[in-house]
Design a protein around this nucleic acid. Structure first.
Ligand SMILES: [Mn+2]
Ligand SMILES: [Mn+2]
Ligand SMILES: [Zn+2]
Ligand SMILES: [Zn+2]
Lengths: 151, 151
DNA sequence: ATCTAAATAGGAATAATTCTTGATAAGGAC
DNA sequence: GTCCTTATCAAGAATTATTCCTATTTAGAT
């Protein structure tokens, strides 16, 4: 899965469309995120990217992540007070945070369902975005006795 | 609304039930949060509490908030990377963050609706908790041209 | 080849929160 | 009431993720 070679063209266009440049650093950060379906932190992206662009700085990784997020090519995921994570999945979805193994799982929206139908809005609220996160124990960790997964 | 004198008894019992003491600081922090239906940050709680307990320190406010949250007497609300907010509403609800006036509004769960029915869980996930936040423009701010509310 | 604005590396700065520590106070045993 | 044990507190230092700053480099246009 994950075909960065295909996405690259579109990402370039999107970046260019904003009057920005697709630099080596930005492409490397983008490829790292699209290359896995996990939700790495900025530091994790940093360490992965350094194999391709060894001179990149953490500040640049933050800048690139910011740019990519601003262009809608990547999503930022916040969970409690933890460090931000970055997500390659652009479909509408929620997240499950496993308290045992710390893995983050995408939860796709069920068809025909709408988050705004579940809660009551006392007035005319203009919803620009929403973020939904569940936490608990993931299937892998529920099965096994204690913490036994990688990471 | 808001009858802290009534809650106090129960809060005391809850605190005692955990082998903890209801100190002046803890009661003051608790009363401050229950006294309004907004969602103050730790620093806002700090400044409000100082009128009752002028010698309290910010670290103690953080400790008290932590204790109260741990006892289930108060909820912690996280939104993106912003500072944590604290909520007196113990009912299940989501939050709306107005990007214009920064107000936080409680969104009660509609009866018969369940958050976990909206998203698809690929496996046996044990849900311990969930947090849902919408953001956009609140009714007050949608009506008026630009930012014109207090705060 | 030259020019200009955007982008980067590296390090300093910021801000929210947590940690550390010595002093204080509450509650129970006697 | 006095003594003892332990929880709690205040104050400030430390931590950590993220942002800011600035001199230097680079991409892209002319
Ligand atoms: Mn995701
Ligand atoms: Mn609330
Ligand atoms: Zn797990
Ligand atoms: Zn508003």
């Amino acid at each position: 899965m994950a075909t960065p070679s295909n996405h690259t063209q579109t990402a370039d266009e999107t970046i260019h469309g904003r009057g920005l440049r697709m630099t080596d650093q930005r492409r490397a950060v983008y490829d790292v995120i699209m290359g896995e379906r996990d939700h790495p932190t900025a530091v994790e992206v940093f360490t992965r990217v350094r194999s391709k662009v060894p001179t990149i700085s953490l500040a640049t990784v933050y800048n690139c992540l910011d740019t990519l997020t601003g262009c809608g090519l990547v999503k930022t995921v916040a969970h409690e007070r933890e460090s931000a994570r970055y997500c390659p999945n652009l479909e509408e979805h929620a997240h499950f945070f496993c308290e045992a193994c710390k893995a983050v799982t995408d939860l796709p929206l069920r068809s025909r369902k709408k988050p705004e139908d579940v809660w009551e809005f006392p007035g005319e609220f203009a919803i620009a975005s929403h973020e939904v996160s569940f936490s608990g124990t993931c299937p892998k960790c529920s099965a096994k006795p204690a913490k036994s997964n990688k990471r």
